[in-house]
Amino acid sequence: MSFLELNNVTKSYGSNTVLRGINLHVEKHEVVCLIGASGCGKSTLLRTVNALEPINGGDIRLEDDVVSGEGVNVNALRQKVGIVFQSFNLFPHMTVLQNVTLSPVKVLGIAKVEAEERAMALLTRVGLDHKAAAFPDQLSGGQQQRVAIVRALAMNPEVLLLDEITSALDPELVAEVLNIVRELAQEGLTILMATHEMSFAREVSNRVAFLHEGRVLEIGEPEQIFGNPQEERTQEFLQKIVAAGRL
């Protein structure tokens, strides 16, 4: 039994099948990176894990509890499984501190003072404590994405899902966001992330899963996937990545 399991998960939008029998197991404290061409199903897969997208078949388990299908307590699930998107999705009318403390106060019932203390500690950690009173439109993209990560961490999740969190950033801002993820990985947070940052995936992940047409075509340790991929389609994908100077 793994900490997080997707067993034969399928997902369709009408006649368009996006996930075709996904089998993926993630151990506690493990970092698994999802790679593959745009449209292969990475983002949809992540969104099924915390029930943002209902699945059509199979099941998803967290600590052996089924967390997919009818009757699942979605609010309880999302307390355990945080997600950060490529678009920052911060509330524009709220300050940084208000964005970070909203869910701990409203969902977890934490006292406002305690929530603010925890939020400030997290903001300090990512170098943004001086921006607590700022509004999102007063921040750079990299700063907004760091706030989005802090907002997810404020719920003290057991699993963190990261969906292409650097794709909307200018290249010079990517490093500051990836540094935070690197630290979280080193501390043992369970992370499942979709990324186009191949060098980062190679460095930080315990395993890498290559998705193709809604299936996990190949999965293994980073050195095996990037250095000696077995599947022809994986080889083709990585050859293009190398040719583009991204690995």
Rank of each mutant, 00 (worst) to 15 (best):
S68M: 07
S68F: 02
S68L: 06
S68E: 01
S68A: 07
S68V: 10
S68C: 05
S68Q: 05
G69Q: 07
G69M: 10
G69I: 04
G69F: 04
E70V: 10
E70Q: 07
E70G: 01
E70F: 09
E70P: 07
G71D: 12
G71F: 11
G71Q: 13
G71Y: 08
G71I: 10
V72L: 08
V72G: 04
V72A: 01
V72C: 05
N73I: 05
N73K: 02
N73L: 05
N73Q: 05
V74Y: 03
V74W: 05
V74G: 06
V74D: 08
V74N: 01
V74R: 06
N75C: 14
A76Q: 15
A76S: 15
L77E: 09
L77Y: 08
L77R: 06
R78D: 09
R78M: 08
R78G: 06
Q79E: 12
Q79Y: 04
Q79C: 04
Q79G: 12
Q79T: 12
Q79K: 13
Q79L: 10
Q79M: 10
K80C: 09
K80W: 09
K80M: 11
K80H: 10
K80A: 09
K80R: 15
K80N: 11
K80V: 11
V81T: 04
V81C: 04
V81W: 01
V81I: 12
V81H: 02
V81E: 01
V81M: 02
G82S: 01
G82T: 01
I83L: 13
I83E: 03
I83C: 11
I83S: 04
V84D: 02
V84S: 01
F85P: 08
F85W: 10
F85S: 04
F85N: 06
F85V: 10
F85Q: 04
F85K: 02
Q86W: 11
Q86N: 14
Q86P: 14
Q86S: 15
Q86D: 15
Q86G: 15
S87W: 14
S87Y: 15
S87T: 15
S87E: 15
S87V: 14
S87P: 14
F88E: 07
F88K: 05
F88G: 08
F88H: 13
F88W: 13
F88I: 09
F88N: 09
F88C: 13
F88P: 07
F88L: 13
N89C: 11
N89D: 15
N89I: 11
N89S: 11
N89P: 12
N89F: 11
N89A: 14
N89T: 12
L90R: 06
L90K: 07
L90P: 01
L90V: 03
L90S: 06
F91A: 08
F91G: 04
F91R: 00
F91V: 10
F91D: 10
F91L: 11
P92G: 11
P92R: 13
P92F: 11
P92C: 14
P92V: 13
P92Y: 09
P92M: 12
H93G: 10
H93R: 11
H93T: 12
M94D: 06
T95P: 07
T95L: 06
T95M: 06
T95F: 03
V96K: 00
V96T: 01
V96M: 00
V96A: 00
V96Y: 00
V96E: 00
L97E: 06
L97A: 03
L97Q: 02
L97Y: 02
L97C: 04
L97M: 12
L97R: 03
L97H: 02
Q98E: 15
Q98S: 09
Q98N: 09
Q98W: 03
Q98M: 06
N99K: 05
N99L: 03
